[in-house]
Computed example of a mutant assay.
Amino acid sequence: MLLSRTVMSLKPQFSKSHILTAVSSVQGTQAVPPNLVELYLDYNCRFSYKIFQKWDDAKLFDKETLSKYNLAFRFNHVIQPWHPFGTLVHELGIVAGSLKPELFWKYSMVLFHDSKELWTEEYTQSKTTIELYKELSEHCEKHTGLKADVVYDKLNGSGKDDTTKAIKYFTRYHRQNGVHMTPSIAVNGIILGNIESSTDTNKVLEIIQAQTA
C-alpha cells in the first residue's frame, strides 16, 4: 500500500497494529496517500477514553469512513507520569498488538474501560508489580485469546527488553512532537487544539477535512 512518509515514519513493527487504513497492503495500492490522523492517548486518561469511545461509536474508525475521507488513523501511546499504573497497561497494549495486530484497536477499548472502572489507584497500590503483570496477562488471555504465559513473558520475562524499547520509542516520539497532554490530535503532522474529547464527531470531520483540503 502506498502511504505517506508521515505514516511510514512509524516503526514497521507497529504498522499492522497501530495504523488503521481503508485498504490493506495485501489488497492493492492506493493512488493518493491517505491523510494521517494521529491520536495521542493514555489508557489511564478518562478524556482519552471519552474521545476514543466517541469516535468508535460514530464509526470514524470504520473502513467506510476511512475510504470516504481518505484517512488513516494512528494510535500513539502517551504515558502520563501521574498515572503510576499507566506504563504497565500501555506495555500490555503494545504486547497484544505485537502478537495479534488485528485486535489492537478493539482490545484498546477494553483497556480504556478497565483502566477507568477496574484498575483504580486504590486497587493497584495494594499489589506488587509481578502480581499486576500476572493479572494483566490473564486479562489479555480473556479478551484476546492469547496465552497468559506468552503475554507475561513479553511483559516481565525474556521479552521484557523488547517491550521496554517499544515504550521508549513511543515516549520519544510524542516528546519530540511536543505532545504532553492527552488526548491530543494531529492531522498530517499538525497538532490541532480545536479537537477535544467534547467535540462533536461531525465537527471533528469538518475540522479534519479543512486540514486536508
Rank of each mutant, 00 (worst) to 15 (best):
T201Y: 12
V187G: 01
K165C: 12
T163S: 07
Y169S: 12
Y152I: 01
K168L: 11
D200F: 10
R175V: 08
T171Y: 00
H174C: 07
P183K: 11
Y173M: 13
T171V: 10
P183L: 07
K168S: 13
L155S: 09
S184Y: 10
D162W: 12
T163H: 12
E196N: 05
G157A: 03
D153S: 08
N194K: 07
M181K: 15
L192T: 01
L155T: 00
K168I: 15
R172C: 02
S184A: 12
D149F: 07
D153A: 09
T171W: 04
A166H: 09
Y173C: 04
G159P: 02
K160N: 09
S184L: 02
K168F: 14
V179K: 09
Y169F: 12
T199N: 10
Y152W: 14
T201V: 11
H174T: 07
N188A: 07
K203C: 02
S158M: 00
Y173P: 05
H180P: 00
T163G: 04
A166S: 14
D162Y: 04
M181C: 03
N156D: 13
I190E: 15
I195M: 11
S184R: 07
D149R: 01
V204N: 06
D162Q: 08
N194S: 09
R172E: 15
Y173V: 03
L205M: 13
K160H: 07
S184V: 04
Y152A: 01
V187Y: 09
G189A: 08
T164G: 03
D161R: 08
H174F: 01
S158T: 12
A166M: 12
R172F: 03
V179R: 01
I191A: 10
K203E: 14
Q176T: 10
Y173G: 04
H174W: 00
E196C: 00
K165H: 06
T199C: 01
Y152E: 07
R175F: 08
V179N: 08
P183N: 03
N202S: 08
G178H: 05
I190L: 04
N194Q: 06
K165F: 07
L205C: 02
A166E: 06
T171D: 09
D200N: 13
G159Q: 09
L155N: 04
Y169M: 02
K168D: 15
N188M: 05
T182K: 15
N202Q: 09
I190A: 04
T182S: 11
V187N: 03
T182G: 10
S197C: 03
N188R: 08
V187A: 01
S158L: 06
K203L: 11
R172G: 09
G157R: 01
K154C: 09
V150M: 05
K165A: 15
D200R: 05
T201K: 02
V187Q: 10
T182M: 10
V187W: 04
G178T: 00
V187D: 03
S158C: 04
I167K: 05
I191N: 00
T163N: 03
K165M: 05
S197T: 01
H174K: 12
G193F: 07
H174V: 02
I190D: 13
N194R: 04
Q176H: 06
V179G: 06
D200L: 01
D161E: 13
S197Y: 12
P183S: 06
L192I: 04
N194C: 02
R175N: 14
D200C: 01
G193L: 10
R172T: 13
E196L: 05
G178D: 06
G157P: 11
